[in-house]
Simulated assay, not measured.
Amino acid sequence: MYGSAAHNIYAQNNVEVESPAKLIEMLYEGVLRFNAQAKKAIKDGDIEKRVYWINRSTSIIVELVSILDLNQGGVSEYLNGLYNYEIQLLAEANMDNDISKIDEVSNVFKGLSDAWRETNNVAH
Rank of each mutant, 00 (worst) to 15 (best):
D114R: 12
L68D: 04
N80I: 01
G81Q: 09
A38W: 03
A6K: 00
A21C: 09
I47L: 14
E86A: 15
E25G: 08
E92K: 05
V65A: 01
L70M: 09
I99D: 01
D46N: 15
E16W: 08
A21K: 12
L27S: 02
W116N: 07
A5F: 15
K101T: 02
N13P: 03
H7I: 06
N94A: 03
A93K: 01
Q88G: 04
M26K: 11
A93Y: 01
D103R: 01
A36D: 14
L79G: 03
M1Y: 05
L27N: 02
L89Y: 02
S59W: 07
L32V: 05
A11E: 13
N107Q: 12
I42K: 05
I24R: 03
N55Y: 02
L70W: 13
T58D: 06
F109N: 02
L27Y: 01
M1P: 11
L23C: 14
G111V: 03
K101S: 05
E18H: 06
I9M: 02
T58H: 07
N84S: 09
D114I: 07
K101E: 10
Q88V: 11
N71L: 05
Q88F: 09
E86H: 07
K43S: 12
S113E: 02
N55A: 08
Q37M: 15
N8R: 06
N55R: 08
V62H: 12
E63V: 04
D44L: 09
G30N: 11
M1K: 10
K49S: 14
L82K: 14
A123Q: 09
D44W: 02
V15R: 08
A115S: 06
Y28T: 00
D44R: 13
D44Q: 13
I24M: 12
E86W: 01
K40L: 12
K39I: 11
F34P: 01
S66M: 13
S59H: 10
I67A: 03
N107H: 08
I67W: 01
E86K: 10
D96F: 15
S57Q: 03
V17A: 10
S76N: 08
I102G: 00
A5Q: 07
V65F: 00
L112Y: 05
N97F: 07
E25M: 14
K101A: 04
V122R: 03
E63S: 14
W53I: 02
Y2G: 05
A91Y: 05
E16A: 14
I99Y: 00
V51W: 00
P20F: 06
V31S: 00
L82W: 07
V31L: 04
I87E: 01
I47D: 10
R33K: 15
V75H: 11
